[in-house]
Design a protein around this nucleic acid. Structure first.
Length: 262
DNA sequence: ATGGTTGTTTAACAA
């Protein structure tokens, strides 16, 4: 089973890039964030035409939005609201083998890394705290896969320059501490770092603002796949599709992250 | 130190 996660930054604008991902990488399940489409506007037919007959989508106008698109049937689908907001950041479903799959979009948190001055950063920190508490309460030994845009690059080599990123939202010590607490709240294994040692740079996002994203290569690893430890023997490989950042004149600023499991 | 780009929806907001 090949599972992909991708912050697509508008599923309607970039449905062609999703079709290319399907054709070239043949994922079985695609988890999307920032779909930016209400459910009635989601391009269901394009997914169905590519064999993704099973969709669990949760969208809203303009912002956020998450979706699970699958070749295999999904059951016990649902969603959860976070920080008391109905802002479409988490959907889940069970796979035929009863593995739970969760697709999450963590708030970006704005530009100023001070919760007193920046309500968006306070929201992000509260969101991460709530994730740790909720997952701790759900540590029940069942097999789970948790993917998404977590908007935090936790390791020093998950950013292009650890020192220059310490005051930049997505790599501040407080965010890293809270993401790590979430990861420890429930038995989770970072499925990509399972394959790649921490000394090695890994990025899944490059800013639109760079003149030449590829040359400057100031990336961050914001997109993650975590699995419960019982699934680690089933992990067969991973892929971060860097080339997708250049697939189109108008790409997403994130690229697909994939693992083969089972 | 600052500004740089993008998508949705149409002037502002979020990323």
């Amino acid at each position: 089973m090949r599972i992909a996660t991708w912050n697509i930054n508008s599923v309607r604008l970039r449905i062609g890039l999703i079709e290319r991902l399907i054709d070239e990488e043949k994922p079985d399940i695609i988890c999307l964030q920032e779909t930016k489409a209400i459910d009635d506007a989601f391009p269901r037919a394009a997914f169905a035409a590519k064999g993704f007959a099973h969709l669990h989508i949760l969208g809203m106008k303009s912002y956020n939005g998450v979706a699970i698109a699958s070749r295999v049937p999904l059951h016990d689908v649902g969603h959860r609201d976070w920080q008391g907001r109905e802002d479409c950041r988490h959907v889940f479903a069970s796979l035929p083998d009863e593995t739970e799959l969760h697709c999450v979009y963590v708030p970006a948190g704005g530009d100023v890394p001070d919760p007193a001055a920046n309500p968006k950063f306070a929201h992000k920190l509260g969101f991460l705290d709530e994730c740790a508490a909720w997952w701790k309460s759900r540590a029940d030994g069942k097999s789970k896969i948790l993917v998404g845009d977590f908007n935090v690059a936790p390791l020093e080599n998950d950013v292009w320059s650890h020192k220059q990123m310490l005051d930049i939202v997505s790599h501040t010590p407080i965010e890293v501490e809270k993401l790590t607490a979430w990861q420890k709240s429930h038995p989770w294994v970072d499925a990509v770092r399972h394959f790649v040692p921490p000394q090695e740079k890994l990025y899944s996002w490059w800013s639109y603002r760079a003149q030449d994203w590829n040359a400057s290569d100031r990336g961050r690893r914001l997109d993650h796949i975590w699995v419960t430890p019982d699934l680690t023997p089933a992990l067969k490989g991973y892929r971060i599709l860097r080339e997708a950042r250049g697939w189109d004149p108008k790409p997403s600023d994130h690229v697909p992250v994939m693992v083969d499991v089972g």
